[in-house]
């Protein structure tokens, strides 16, 4: 950008490997791990939340290091925070709302039970 940020290659490599690892973790969280129900929150809602939380972490890594927000003028960060915040609120909020949507509860539970019978023991 015309400014010299010093030797940023180690930071770039760290972000790259973190992104790769987090991507694998996202897949593992979605395909391998099946969270149990916690109170009124269904386990699969936790799966979605974990997946989105990892995505948010990856986005922050890319924005701060690859897109140079860490090195740039702080004014720029405020300019970016607003739409990013709205995006996260919408994505998280709507997905969490889904967990409490009674119209989907029966369908989701039935399908989920067929796929992962071990997660739904008798009496649950």
């Amino acid at each position: 950008m015309g400014h010299d940020h010093g030797n940023v290659i180690p930071a770039y490599m760290k972000v790259f490997f973190t992104l790769c690892a987090m991507t694998l973790l996202t897949v593992a969280a979605a395909k391998l791990v099946h969270f149990p129900d916690v109170g009124f929150i269904h386990g699969y809602v936790l799966n979605i939340t974990v997946g989105l939380a990892i995505a948010v972490f990856k986005v922050i890594c890319v924005m701060y290091i690859f897109m140079h927000l860490k090195f740039d003028n702080p004014y720029l960060r405020f300019f970016v925070y607003v739409p990013v915040f709205l995006f996260f609120v919408l994505t998280f909020g709507l997905n969490l709302e889904f967990g409490a949507a009674p119209s989907n509860d029966h369908v989701t539970r039935t399908v989920h039970q067929q796929l992962y019978p071990g997660d739904h023991k008798a009496g649950h």
């Binding site: 996202t26 897949v27 395909k31 997946g51 986005v59 989920h112």
Partner: peptide, 15 residues
């Protein structure tokens, strides 16, 4: 960045 969200939303979000 957009793909980071599209990937879980379309491909992974369903149990």
């Amino acid at each position: 960045l957009m793909w980071i969200f599209i990937f879980p939303a379309l491909y992974l979000i369903f149990p």
